[in-house]
Amino acid sequence: MNDKNPSGASYPELLTVSPSPHIRHSDTTRSVMTDVIIALVPALIWGVICFGPRAALVVILSVASCVLAEYVFEKITHRKVTIGDCSAAVTGLLLGLSLSSSVPYYMPVVGGVFAIVVAKQLFGGIGKNFMNPALAARVFLFAWPSEMNKFVKPFSRLSLFASGADVDTVATATPLVSLKTGALPDVSMTELILGEVGGCIGEVSVVLLLLGAAYLLCRRVISWHIPVSYIGVVALLTVLFPRNADTGSFVLSQLFSGGLVIGAFFMATDYSTSPITNKGKLIFGALCGALTVLIRYFGGYPEGVSFAILIANSLVYYIDRVTLPRVFGKGGAANG
């Protein structure tokens, strides 16, 4: 069995016998997660330009603490270390981007550990958590409400060692605070879309977030269903129930303010915590949209995206169950 070929390759003694299929698509969990990171890079760069080096350090701390928390937890519990799949890095990046650049440095660290250990690993790790870890951590960090609701003016770049007093001098109200009262934000629509407003590090530049989202859609990492139904329902409800006489501006400000765009495209589409069928995704998106508007209108906080997605997350298994696709050949009109 071991005769040599001219090329030197030999017939092997043993061949591998395993069931089909024998080949596979080149995508891996890591490549999918890397795509998400690539898609968030433009918004991250804008955040750093807008809010200075302190923003960069907040994000770096968040990513590092997520990856480290995953590594340490898996070592302690004798599980396979999965930091190579980059999912912890994505969680860290999303958490960092959804914090204000003025938060004390311990907050991204506490948040990162909470996201990975409590929201993800305690439920069994990647694919098994029922809440989006980054959002769960963000909501956990509302234990420090004053820090979480303090935002700095765009281009007032805080130094790495800025103190609380420095922050207070450049603090600003975000567009959402104005919208809460029914007033239009005191920034132009262009500033709003480009991201020249106060807010979380990664949520401000609508244009760059949409660029990243387009990349994910092209790579088929995400589908259009959740973001379209999410943003669609927010638009619909704000059109139907405007709180300002200038309905058009009010609706657009609602859509382009706060975390709606980053939430709809990057957080609500998280695989583990969103439904798997297209019909389920539409329902889930609509639910997120309705909850977001409810909280923005009637809740205690100006922003509702994080809470809305987390509440919808908890219903995903049931949404999956009621949106099972009709099996090919079973029932339906096509079979006469």
Binding site: Y11, L15, T16, S18
Partner: peptide, 20 residues
């Protein structure tokens, strides 16, 4: 002949064929 050492020989296609 061969140019590399094979891991699998498949009778049929790579999606549904049987490894030999």
């Amino acid at each position: 002949g061969l140019k590399k050492t094979p891991e699998k020989i498949i009778n049929g296609g790579p999606m549904m064929g049987a490894a030999q």
